[in-house]
Amino acid sequence: MPGWDGAVAIVIALALLLDFLLGEPRRAHPLVGFGRAAEVLERRFNSGNRRVLKGTACWLLLIVPVVLLVLYLDGRSARWGWPGYVDDVVLLYLAIGWRSMGQHVAPIEAALARPDTIDLPQARAALAMIVSRDTAAMDAPALLGATVETTLENSADALFASLFWYVVAGPAGVVAHRLANTLDAMWGYRSPRYHAFGRCAARMDDALNLLPAQLLALTFALVSPYPAKTWHCIFTQGWRWKSFNAGAVMASGAAALGVVLGGPACYRGQSVVRPPLGWGRAVAPGDLARVRRLVRRSLGAWLLVLAMPTLILIAAAMVAV
């Protein structure tokens, strides 16, 4: 039940604090049960004809009832006043996965931190857990580039998109986005198995991520030490990338860091050469920490904007006194 009375910024700050202190729940995370239900439906209906229609129906069956339930519960909790925001904090915390992303990146960073102690097998195995591309033949520069790319992209998916949808549509918006993003991660592939069945999942995830991804790309530009070059890279590179959302975020993030991403990659045994994103030098081990600082600066900018109405009211009250 968001509003512009300062509660939004407080709820977001508390949810972020829980994520920082606790990370994702190791047991009984609601998305585990949701994922199992999605697997059952996919095995049952992803066959034969009309797979696009079947995939769309399964998407609706999995997401719409949950969103309606959250809407109903949110309406009831709104009557409680401030105690009702506890539900918002918990739900938003469950939707955020930023600390979890950092925990996945940490082994890669440790394996590639020093040139004399590089552990390519460890880095490849850790990266394979968070990307869809083939990592078995990657060298250190390719591993670093892929890690920066996925960190930037996941900052949009696992953090800023949830915050955006909480501000815009409350808990129901957060749930709709998180479940849609989960189904896209499970079904949204252009493989023979999922190309038709997962089309709705992929398109809906693109739609729900459109505004938060573009806002995040613009935020990277605003907090960048190279704003003009960052804007240029968004327009000339990111918006021409194969994924409009991911391209904008990665191009903006790379330009803000002064590094170049993109280039060769291998997906399911097929090599592709992707256009460059960003400008400057190749990615170095220290850039993984710089990505996190860039995300923190952008997060601070979002929180400042959300808290601004309350800060203005406080300042006006102090002047009046």
Score class of each variant (00 low, 15 high):
Gly3Ala: 10
Gly6Ser: 05
Gly6His: 13
Gly6Tyr: 14
Ala7Glu: 04
Ala15Gln: 12
Leu16Thr: 03
Leu16Cys: 12
Leu18Asn: 12
Leu18Phe: 14
Leu22Met: 10
Gly23Pro: 01
Pro25Asp: 03
Phe34Thr: 07
Arg36Phe: 05
Glu39His: 03
Val40Gln: 01
Leu41Gln: 00
Leu41Pro: 00
Leu41Cys: 02
Glu42His: 08
Ser47Leu: 07
Gly48Glu: 06
Asn49Leu: 05
Asn49Gln: 10
Trp59Arg: 07
Leu60Ser: 08
Leu62Cys: 11
Pro65Gly: 07
Pro65Thr: 10
Asp74Phe: 03
Gly75Val: 08
Arg76Ser: 02
Trp80Phe: 02
Gly81Asn: 02
Pro83Gln: 02
Val86Phe: 09
Asp87Trp: 14
Val89Gln: 04
Val89His: 05
Ala95Ile: 02
Arg99Leu: 02
Ser100Cys: 08
Gly102Trp: 05
Gln103Cys: 02
Ala106Asp: 14
Ile108Tyr: 15
Ala110Cys: 10
Ala111Trp: 06
Ala113His: 15
Ala113Phe: 14
Asp116Thr: 11
Asp116Pro: 04
Asp116Lys: 12
Thr117Asp: 13
Leu120Phe: 03
Gln122Ile: 04
Arg124Tyr: 08
Ala126Cys: 07
Ile130Lys: 11
Ile130Phe: 12
Ala146His: 10
Thr151Lys: 00
Leu152Met: 14
Leu152Gly: 15
Asp157Gly: 13
Leu159Ala: 06
Phe160Arg: 01
Ser162Asp: 08
Tyr166Asn: 00
Val167Asp: 03
Val168Leu: 11
Pro171Trp: 01
Ala172Phe: 12
Gly173Gln: 08
Ala176His: 07
His177Tyr: 15
Asn181Thr: 11
Asn181Cys: 09
Leu183His: 05
Met186Asp: 06
Trp187Met: 02
Trp187Asn: 04
Tyr189Phe: 13
Ser191Ile: 03
Arg193Pro: 01
Tyr194Asp: 13
Gly198Glu: 06
Ala201His: 13
Arg203Pro: 01
Asp205Val: 11
Asp205Gln: 07
Asp206Ala: 13
Leu208Gln: 10
Asn209Ile: 12
Ala213Ser: 13
Ala217Ser: 10
Thr219Ser: 11
Val223Pro: 01
Ala228Val: 12
Trp241Lys: 00
Asn245Cys: 05
Asn245Gly: 00
Gly247Asn: 11
Gly247Tyr: 10
Gly247Ala: 12
Ala248Lys: 04
Gly253Gln: 06
Val259Cys: 08
Gly263Asn: 03
Pro264Arg: 04
Cys266Leu: 09
Gln270Val: 15
Ser271His: 13
Val273Thr: 13
Pro275His: 14
Trp279Pro: 00
Ala282Met: 07
Ala282Cys: 07
Ala284Gln: 14
Val291His: 06
Val295Tyr: 09
Leu299Ser: 09
Gly300Phe: 05
Ala301Phe: 15
Trp302Asn: 13
Thr310Ala: 13
Thr310Val: 12
Thr310Ile: 06
Ile312Asp: 07
Leu313Arg: 15
Ile314Arg: 14
Ala316Gln: 15
Ala316Val: 08
Ala317Ser: 15
